[in-house]
Simulated assay, not measured.
Amino acid sequence: MPSTRAAPSPPRAPSETEAVQASKAELVVDARHGTGESPVWHAGEQALYWVDIPGRTVDRWSPEDGHVQWHAPQMPACIAAVAGRPGQWLAGMEDGVHTLDLGCDGQARLTPLAPVQHARAGMRFNDGRCDRQGRFWAGTMLMDMVAAARTGVLYRLDGATLQPVLDGLITPNGLAFSPDGRTMYLSDSHPQVQAIWAFDYDTDTGTPSNRRLFADMGPLPGRPDGAAIDVDGGYWICGNDAGLVHRFMPDGRLDRSLEVPVKKPAMCAFGGPALDTLFVTSIRPAGDLSDQPLAGGVFALRPGTQGLPEPAWQP
């Protein structure tokens, strides 16, 4: 396993006057999802797709059609469109990777593609996406986060086989690829870790190397959750528990943070006709939500930059 080395200049917490910006987050869908995750902007449809993990749904929203959803027989955690197959998606779920056909009856039909051998019971996939070349990557986790079990594995999908690439993770998250595809980012959002790593990435073979600490979020507000990349290589990551979305520059410097009106933003994705809207999904925890009634919703921010088209899986 590659060694870890510290970033040249660790980020500092944003001050109230410098980095945290009131962002005028717009509510897109009052979804009230238990765990809204994996937002993907489908440029061909001009629509946002995402999932609710415990609700077992795949959701879609567009300005023209509003909000619709499909129910799945097991929990979907991360999705990617399938190139050349309209209406079909790839999904990391509980027992492996499946293709999903989203029918007209509100049901998502599963076709098993690549089963996974979990280290123990009670695990599922979590964060995942495609690299710039259309390879699908996804990580697994134990759903009982209190156990803090380092049983999570980052996999690369090779044909119909899941190739384990990195192990020893608790809650893998924050997977993203730089605009040129030559840097891979990965975080572990568990409270005992709260780290983001960068890797050199061989675009020909899909091999990460030279693992290094990109940002230690322990001193910063929020745990590192799902992420997105902008055209300048800025790495946007949700600060779970802090109601913030942070932007780190490629050198590891914390550039700024945007507020959302919920405590647990989960993942973000650029979308809209010009890819200049940052959509943010969120988590609706149990308990008193009087201070965050919109928890579990999907929000839109205008961050002042543009994102990149999300690659589809190349079967």
Rank of each mutant, 00 (worst) to 15 (best):
V245P: 06
P285Y: 08
A7L: 09
T140N: 10
D52Y: 06
D52I: 01
Q107R: 13
M145E: 15
G271D: 03
I283K: 09
V146M: 14
V193W: 11
G92R: 01
H33F: 08
P285F: 06
A215G: 05
S282N: 10
M75E: 04
V165G: 12
S209G: 05
D52R: 08
L169S: 08
P63D: 02
R182C: 12
F279A: 04
A81M: 03
R124Q: 00
W137R: 08
I229T: 14
G87D: 01
K263V: 14
L213S: 01
Q194R: 15
D204S: 04
R132V: 02
G239I: 02
A149Y: 15
G36W: 09
G103M: 06
S257Y: 14
W50P: 03
G96P: 04
M143W: 04
G55C: 06
R253P: 02
L27R: 01
E18H: 12
L213M: 06
D105K: 03
D188Q: 11
I237V: 14
G218C: 13
Q74G: 03
P315E: 12
Q314V: 07
T151G: 15
D202N: 00
L220G: 12
C238K: 07
V280K: 07
R132G: 05
H67Y: 08
N126D: 11
P303R: 11
Q292W: 06
F136D: 01
L110S: 03
D52C: 08
T35S: 10
P285I: 11
P54V: 01
G84Q: 00
G92H: 02
P224V: 13
L90N: 02
S189F: 12
A43C: 13
T151R: 02
L27C: 08
C268W: 09
S3T: 14
S62M: 09
T183C: 02
S290F: 09
M93P: 02
P261S: 10
W50K: 04
D158I: 14
G234T: 07
G272R: 01
Y49Q: 04
V82A: 00
G297K: 10
A43P: 06
E94P: 06
T151H: 15
N240Q: 08
R129F: 07
G239S: 04
R129Q: 10
L154Q: 04
V97Q: 12
P219G: 10
F279P: 04
A6F: 11
N210Q: 03
R247W: 08
D255L: 13
A160V: 11
R302P: 04
A176I: 01
A149T: 15
L166G: 00
A195P: 03
M75L: 03
C130D: 02
I229G: 07
F177P: 02
P309Y: 07
A138S: 15
R85L: 06
R109I: 00
T140H: 05
G233M: 07
G239F: 08
R129M: 05
L220Y: 14
N126Y: 13
F299E: 10
E94H: 10
R156M: 11
P76D: 09
A119N: 10
L100V: 06
D200H: 03
M75T: 04
V231Y: 13
P86N: 05
I53A: 03
G206K: 03
P293H: 06
T4V: 13
E45R: 11
V68A: 15
V245M: 13
M1D: 11
Q194G: 07
L102C: 08
L220M: 11
G271Y: 14
A13G: 01
R129E: 06
P172V: 13
N210L: 01
